[in-house]
Design a protein around this nucleic acid. Structure first.
Lengths: 417, 417
DNA sequence: ACAATTTGTTCAGTGGTTGAATTATTTGGC
DNA sequence: GCCAAATAATTCAACCACTGAACAAATTGT
């Protein structure tokens, strides 16, 4: 008579008109095709979704005609019966364009519906002395190349996402990117001079500008293990950012500025931080702090080179390097303990520069977690490096465009008939 | 050509069958009636939702027949035309039962669809020496009284929610309620001996057991200002818990154990905490810490009496009391800064015992926030006491049952025809 | 009294799902 | 080699819920 069960709060969706039924079922079926480990048949989908086979057939026809799905060999089966036709996401339909501006490189990539990276270019350059307009002009060049590559592959770019290392406000305005030296840069305005980078598709924004750590988290969500629905993705660059994925969706906060984990207070009376606070995490686990403690501060190397050298020293057993990483990991562990106590996450992903340094950061983080997290006796917390490695923002951004189409295929289908 | 806009991740809803259309529109229309500041007419709802007036009429007929909605005087209007008939949530339909077991009281209340508290009983008793079975037996007595009250008012109890000050696992198992002395208590099992407290309604669980701070947050969500969609509700009792509301939904975490803000590390090398960590917030801002600092530790008073006395001393300008509250507020401010940096929340609600102490806690919290939150220059953070006051969990739990029916009215309508 | 206006209902029409029957294509037994 | 069994996919009449327009109802203002 008594039993307990959660009521998942039905998110108040808008008006449900007549045609919404088809829209919803297109999204439902396409989502199942995307999530299936092997190419499902129409019959599998009918059994899986609860729709009738007739409806699934009609829906799948629409998806195939719209170049979102194509037929392939199904999962092998034994026994009698007409063989199934497997359904997979099309490799010749829409694709997402991912862009990234960071302190010492530009990147562009193209990701198709299945999440496969079909094109990826990284252009190394120190962007700090370059004006935002010039940096974005160079980026537009990379984007044009990516578009040509997409055309060659038979893909249609349906939207673009740009990652920047900073706070992004409404309308793509970059409020503050301290390590790039940007302040109140109107990115869409500056990119408007260049030819548009994607076809207009209803429901998919032409250009989204987002924090680099957020996009890294999205990349991890789609490229990482399928079960990971809630996790913290920490991006250790010059600053420390974090993308928070809750229940399979990026959580952006009231104004889109969530994830500023670098300024969580570790020691309230610690050394002052440029943010105005004291004892922020960045002062203990930021790139500068780690390199200084490891004795690599004077070299003034590009970030990725310095990180690799640090990893090399630590592998060789260098005491200063190991000590620096241990201390940084301990500080990270204190901050992550706060986050896990607050949000009850079961997974923490080390991304950005931390992806390379994960072997040394992980043990002290786990030590602090086991010491400070209340629920440790009942539940493990997994700490692992990002599967996409240190430069995941562009891929994550491009993937998020592809996922937007999978989440709402009706927009793409309405594009041109 | 370039513009920026978020793609809200369409949460993958289950199968969308034929009848789902009606289910969704029932929820849509009922939700608008619940959210409207004044009783809307059918025509208002049609304009508001985008459905046709014909559809709205049909949907409203179902809702009225199912005793979820009733007609009332509409908002006054000037000008010509047939007068509208206003629609309000029924005061004679389903209602939620809210229960709470806390350290020094039991509570039961009945909340109707509109969120009105129709019955509320608080039974003061020190529950620490009482066995869980006895405590729940007493609670069942209060619940029976609440059910009788609901019958007298013409209400039908559609579900119950029980709040406890501790970690709740799957199936309503209370893993740990330290201040109550409970460990691995099977609450639904112990309550099964007593007559069921609510009618079975599809889609509404008979009994949900949840953390008291979570329920307080839900109460705040529904009783507080309509605009508050994301906030942190801090419940300061013997321990310090928090309920996190994100985008209008309670965030429970991977295992339902989110909100353990009391064990966020404030000073990593601070005094040891009973959780095994060091320098946890609870050691600086927990009830015991505050009362000790204020010189009220020896009195061994019930929590609410002690809190009121402390507030009295602070009002009178007592230096020890003011200093204790200032220090506690500062520690809270450090922890809240971490949370706001991480989640970018725009509102923090002081609940539980903190509701009474808010006038003294607020200033030091704001000071720390302005110092430590990166986005302070662009965005204010509101810190305010809970509108439901210090004993909000039972009301919040009962309200969540009512909201579950509003979110999915089809279950209630299918109940008996 | 009557036009204007707004609300709410009725009703034929339509889009999309349903469920059963039908066709298509393979395996396995005789 | 042929046929029964089995599974996949399609076709089609029925049905459900929404749509849009016409209509009835109830009030205000001239």
């Amino acid at each position: 008579m008594w039993h307990c069960q959660e009521v998942t709060s039905t998110s108040a969706v808008g008006a449900v008109r007549q045609g919404s039924l088809r829209e919803l079922n297109l999204a439902l079926v396409l989502g199942r095709i995307a999530a299936a480990p092997t190419p499902p048949s129409r019959a599998d989908l009918a059994a899986d979704t609860g729709l009738t086979r007739a409806t699934v057939s009609a829906v799948v026809d629409d998806l195939i005609n719209g170049r979102l799905v194509s037929e392939a060999a199904p999962a092998p089966r034994t026994g009698a019966g007409r063989p199934a036709r497997g359904l997979v996401l099309a490799d010749h339909g829409p694709a997402g364009l991912g862009l990234e501006v960071n302190v010492d490189y530009l990147a562009a990539c193209v990701v198709d519906l299945a999440g496969t990276v079909r094109h990826h270019v990284v252009h190394r350059a120190d962007l700090r002395p370059v004006s935002p307009a010039d940096a974005l002009a160079r980026l537009a060049g990379l984007a044009a190349g990516a578009r040509a590559a997409a055309d060659r592959e038979g893909l249609t770019l349906a939207g673009a996402t740009l990652g920047v290392p900073g706070l992004v406000g409404a309308g793509g305005l970059v409020r503050l990117a301290p390590n790039l030296g940007w302040r109140d840069v109107d990115v869409p305005g500056l990119l408007a001079d260049h030819p548009p980078l994607a076809e207009p598709v209803p429901g998919v924004p032409h250009l989204v500008v987002d924090n680099e750590a957020n996009l890294g988290a999205l990349g991890e969500l789609h490229a990482g293990p399928a079960g990971a629905r809630s996790f913290l993705h920490i991006s250790g660059e010059v600053g420390i950012g974090a993308g928070i994925v809750l229940d399979g969706a990026l959580f952006r906060g009231a104004r889109g500025w969530s994830g500023e984990i670098g300024h969580i207070p570790i020691r309230p009376d610690g050394p002052p931080c440029r943010c105005g606070g004291r004892g922020c995490l960045e002062r203990y686990a930021g790139q500068e702090a780690i390199l200084t403690a490891a004795g690599l501060a004077g070299a003034d190397l590009p970030a990725d080179i310095a990180t690799n050298r640090l990893a090399g020293l630590a592998t060789a057993g260098d005491l200063a390097a190991c000590g620096a990483l241990h201390d940084a990991g301990t500080a990270l562990g204190v901050a992550v303990s706060a986050v896990v106590n607050l949000l009850d996450l079961d997974t923490v992903v080390l991304g950005g520069g931390y992806a390379t340094l994960a072997p040394w950061l992980r043990p002290p983080i786990l030590t602090e977690l086991s010491r400070r997290v209340l629920t440790t006796p009942w539940a493990e917390v997994t700490v692992r490096p990002a599967v996409l490695g240190p430069r995941s923002a562009a891929v994550g951004g491009a993937g998020s465009v592809a996922r937007a189409i999978i989440a709402r295929p009706a927009g793409w289908l309405a594009r041109s008939g």
